Amino acid sequence: MRVSLEALLKALPKCSIFDTDISKNQYVALDLSITNNTLKSINVTSSEALENYINSHIKSNGVQIAFGGYLETRNIYQRSNYFNNKNPETERNIHLGLDLWIAAKTPIYSPLDGVVHSFKNNTNFGDYGPTIILEHKIKGISFYTLYGHLSLASIQSLKVGQVFEKGDQIATLGDASVNGDYPPHLHFQIIKDIQDYVGDYPGVCSKQDLEFYRNNCPDPLFLLDF
């Protein structure tokens, strides 16, 4: 019987996408969901105001990285028509990856051996900005990892089919001027079936599409080590 991708991810040694010198105690969970009442006093349409809030959370916890967001319903996308169509059933506001909030220019490393499937600068307001998708094949199972909100330099000399080994640097983080107008962070997402997407894949879905995307995009914390 063929093992599922979820079971494979859980069985693999835990991985890192940042410098391995950053220990587990340097991560803190961050809640950006609609149920976080603190955010009601924050202008989340402003990347600067949101960055101040996130940086304050990181500093007050004495850590380097804030993380969270898988299947989190958020209001921060309402500022962009790319996500918000005013219909509660079709508005895209459920986050499908894991966000890791850390300074711009932070190096990003491949968590597994893989090859470049595609890359693109997704320039819609509130979109990923520079994005890389890697393809992985382990024990007969193919799947993909997506890295969004990168620096422009990360994709300038990249080539489709380029090989990365586990631990190789693949990118650096971008800032609000190139990353879709967000505080610096990495959007990391696991994808079973990339469908026909090239250099892009939905990182936020609507309520009516949640079951499909929940199945196609497993929890990144199955793989990562913190």
Rank of each mutant, 00 (worst) to 15 (best):
T145R: 10
I108A: 07
V115W: 12
V115F: 12
Y128F: 15
L150P: 09
H95P: 00
Y128M: 01
S142Q: 14
H149Y: 08
I138R: 06
G129E: 12
V163E: 14
A104N: 12
I133K: 10
W101N: 07
F119H: 11
L98D: 07
F119E: 01
Y109I: 06
Q169G: 02
K137C: 15
S110V: 07
G129Q: 13
G126Y: 11
H95M: 05
S157R: 14
V160N: 12
G129D: 13
G161P: 05
L112N: 10
Q169F: 04
E91F: 00
S118W: 09
L96C: 15
Y109D: 03
S118G: 08
S154W: 09
E89C: 02
E165M: 10
G140W: 13
S118N: 07
P130H: 10
G114H: 12
I102C: 02
D168V: 00
E165I: 11
H136A: 05
L112E: 13
V116L: 06
F119R: 06
T123S: 15
E165N: 15
Y77D: 02
G97C: 04
H95G: 00
A171V: 10
D168G: 00
D168E: 11
L134S: 11
N85F: 09
L146Y: 04
T123R: 13
R74G: 02
N93S: 08
E135K: 15
Q78G: 01
I138S: 05
P130T: 08
P107H: 04
G140C: 09
G140V: 07
H136S: 06
D168A: 03
Q162M: 15
A153L: 08
G148W: 06
Y147V: 06
V115D: 14
T123D: 14
T131K: 04
S118R: 09
S110K: 01
I132D: 09
L152C: 03
H136T: 10
F164I: 10
P88K: 12
K137M: 11
K159Y: 13
T131H: 03
R74V: 06
L150C: 02
P130Q: 07
I155A: 04
G167S: 03
I102E: 08
W101Q: 03
R79W: 12
I94W: 03
P130C: 04
K105P: 00
K86G: 01
G126F: 06
I132S: 02
N81F: 04
G97F: 05
T145K: 02
K137P: 01
R92P: 02
H149F: 08
G129P: 03
L98I: 06
H149N: 03
G129V: 11
K120D: 14
F125P: 13
I155K: 13
D127V: 01
N81C: 00
S154G: 02
Q169N: 12
G167Q: 11
H136N: 08
L146D: 03
Y77E: 08
L150I: 11
S154D: 07
Y82D: 04
L112S: 05
A153R: 10
T123C: 02
I76L: 15
N84E: 10
A171E: 08
A103T: 14
N93V: 01
N87G: 02
F119T: 08
V115A: 08
Y128A: 04
L158I: 13
G167P: 06
